[in-house]
Computed example of a mutant assay.
Amino acid sequence: MLDVTKDKIREAAEQKRREYEKQEREKDEQLRQLQVEANSKRAELLGYRFGYIRGQRYFANLDIRDIRQEGVRIGLFGPAGSGKSSFIVTCERALRPYLCKGTAGIQDAGGEGTIILEECLKELGSDFCLVDTRGFFRHDADEFTALTNIVYGRIEPGQHITFDRRVDNVGSEAYFSKWLHAIIIVLSATDPRLQDGHTHRNNLNVVREFMRPRGIAPITVITHHDKIGKGEERDILTKASTATGSSRDHTFFVTNYHEDKKDRDYNTEIEAMKVMKSALNVAERFVRIHKQQEVYKEVDKARSSQRGTEAVEDFFRRLSAKRHIPFGRFQPIIDVLKREDITTSQSLCDNWRDVQYTVSMSDPMKDYIDEELSSTLQNLHL
């Protein structure tokens, strides 16, 4: 009887040993697969050349030499304490696995004063870099000016970002390679301004209105993923996507590396590299839209001698294509203009100042029309 008991004990112990070894083999295999995936994504990003994601045919007949020479610039924005600098550290460690820490300084929840624009990952030799703007989000007109200065390349790496004036050193079409070609907005999953569902959404409304007509599709990174429960994920994802205007496909949870974390985490690195690839994807789309608009402008100049007899419908079709606004939204304006016998772009230029107050439209729509009329009037006098 004693021998039978000993046999059962040995058998149970052997079964436990086999189960443990099986679990260890499965862990090792999972780790190996993660390592293979991380190495593959890293090689893809380190070898990135502009146009690799969308394909060269996507840019057929467009002059993209400036971007190929200078590379894609991806800007990062977010409140101080959102984990934005930690995300840059995570990206650096993902692409340079021999690093134990990154180069970006990490801010606490304060410190939103004067800041310096910095480029990261430029030295890796790929056709892209991250542009760190540090702590942001006072949500006022001065900060919006700073945002536009950064987006249009008026502030160069190493320069202080000013919140109280427009910088005019660069920023024209000739400096398109200095613009930001993609934007990542970083928000913390634990931020009460995100969790309440309306503070960040209201504060970011002006940013969304700035990006949408320009074809800028923001990427959203939600940090501090490890500090929320599984049941909270969907709600936070929805609130972050709504606040920034990102699609769900462009909204990512990321668990950043921390400054004192030395061990490799392949899941963290894969998350960060997915964000970078997504940003490159939307950047290529943005470049194509902009380059097509440049072609349209050249065509417009060639047709400027005929612009005075252009039908008012064609004026708004051109504006619709340029601003990516459905043509139907202009139809009520066209109807009012026709009732006033304004049927050509020349007549529209001559009478817009008087007739605009009889047309119901939003302020952004009025600004787009004013800008296009100014361009049309300029071309008519070339």
Score class of each variant (00 low, 15 high):
residue 215 G to C: 04
residue 321 A to I: 12
residue 65 R to F: 06
residue 171 G to F: 00
residue 361 M to Q: 09
residue 166 R to V: 10
residue 378 Q to A: 14
residue 335 D to M: 09
residue 7 D to F: 12
residue 282 V to K: 00
residue 24 E to G: 00
residue 198 H to L: 08
residue 152 Y to K: 05
residue 5 T to M: 13
residue 75 G to W: 02
residue 260 D to M: 10
residue 172 S to C: 08
residue 379 N to S: 13
residue 43 A to L: 14
residue 54 R to C: 05
residue 315 F to E: 03
residue 132 D to H: 06
residue 102 G to H: 04
residue 294 E to S: 11
residue 309 T to Q: 12
residue 76 L to G: 00
residue 9 I to M: 09
residue 68 R to Q: 15
residue 5 T to E: 14
residue 181 H to Q: 07
residue 101 K to P: 00
residue 143 E to P: 03
residue 171 G to T: 00
residue 197 G to Y: 05
residue 365 M to T: 15
residue 266 Y to H: 13
residue 305 S to G: 15
residue 306 Q to M: 11
residue 52 Y to N: 14
residue 79 P to G: 07
residue 8 K to P: 00
residue 345 S to V: 13
residue 75 G to R: 01
residue 44 E to Y: 11
residue 297 K to N: 13
residue 10 R to N: 12
residue 236 I to Q: 00
residue 277 K to L: 14
residue 313 E to T: 12
residue 55 G to Q: 08
residue 62 L to P: 08
residue 92 E to F: 02
residue 158 G to K: 03
residue 337 L to W: 05
residue 44 E to W: 07
residue 333 I to F: 06
residue 56 Q to D: 14
residue 372 E to T: 11
residue 267 N to P: 00
residue 344 T to D: 06
residue 357 Y to T: 12
residue 182 A to N: 03
residue 307 R to I: 10
residue 239 K to I: 02
residue 363 D to E: 14
residue 53 I to T: 05
residue 80 A to Q: 08
residue 34 L to D: 09
residue 173 E to M: 09
residue 151 V to Y: 02
residue 374 S to T: 11
residue 261 K to T: 12
residue 58 Y to I: 02
residue 364 P to T: 01
residue 180 L to P: 08
residue 20 Y to D: 09
residue 338 K to C: 06
residue 151 V to W: 01
residue 114 T to N: 10
residue 233 E to N: 07
residue 194 L to G: 02
residue 77 F to L: 15
residue 355 V to S: 07
